[in-house]
């Protein structure tokens, strides 16, 4: 009882947290970009006519989806270097882990998007003499992107949250700075609450956009 919330502490730590925010944003952007691109190719494997490719794609997705992201990060930082015989910086290990994780989840978004396009679209395009590849590129994909936009935005939200796990590898992102400050000043309430709010401010616009996109699509349907 009678605990005094120290607002001056909030002001004091903001510059340090800001440095963390920059690193978080860097991580976020890198992992999202790599994950979305890689995920696309994994989705292609998953819908490929070649069974071995389909199997590989599926294995990749199942492995990264059924293992906690934190384990993946720790594995890439502490175990993977032994395998390749070279040290990774915490940032690189984090990017590697989060990107592959993101790729697995986005592959599933692409795949369900591709499979949600009605047969009639394929037939319509082939009937005017378009090749399979051209049909895929010019007819199917544009619809997939549009239809799956809310799902991709959602994934972006998840990735932003996952980047906080990089603090465990001592990547100097937002959560790491928060933890460090919290143990330095012994003011966990003020500091961790501020960290939470900063995340909220960063992530909420994304969630909002995703919900707005979904609403708009439902209206159109």
């Amino acid at each position: 009882m009678g605990y005094q919330f120290d607002f001056s502490m909030v002001i004091k730590i903001l510059p340090v947290l800001w440095r963390g925010v920059i690193v978080t944003l860097e991580l976020w952007a890198a992992c999202l970009a790599i994950g979305l691109i890689l995920g696309f190719f994994i989705a292609l494997m998953r819908v490929s006519p070649a069974a071995p490719l389909r199997f590989l794609g599926r294995a990749f997705v199942e492995i990264f989806r059924n293992i906690p992201a934190l384990i993946q990060l720790i594995w890439f930082f502490y175990a993977f270097p032994i395998l390749i015989g070279a040290q990774l910086t915490p940032f690189t290990a984090a990017v590697l882990g989060i990107s592959l994780n993101t790729a697995a989840f986005s592959a599933e978004i692409y795949r369900s998007g591709i499979q949600s396009i009605e047969r009639g679209q394929w037939e319509g395009a082939m009937a005017i003499g378009m090749s399979r590849v051209a049909t895929f590129r010019r007819v199917i994909l544009p619809q997939v992107f549009r239809r799956m936009l809310p799902a991709f935005t959602n994934r972006a939200v998840e990735v932003a949250k996952v980047t906080s796990l990089a603090s465990v590898l001592s990547v100097h992102e937002l959560m790491y700075q928060g933890r460090l400050l919290s143990s330095t000043y012994y003011r966990p309430l003020e500091i961790l609450t501020t960290v939470g709010i900063v995340y909220l401010v960063m992530i909420y616009p994304m969630t909002w956009t995703s919900a707005a996109l979904e609403r708009r699509m439902r209206r159109k349907a």
Binding site: S164, M175, G196, Y199, L200, I203, Y204
Partner: peptide
Amino acid sequence: RNTPGIVHFFWVYYA
């Protein structure tokens, strides 16, 4: 939905 789980863990444990 908009804050990472790890923040909640630390908050509940340390605050």
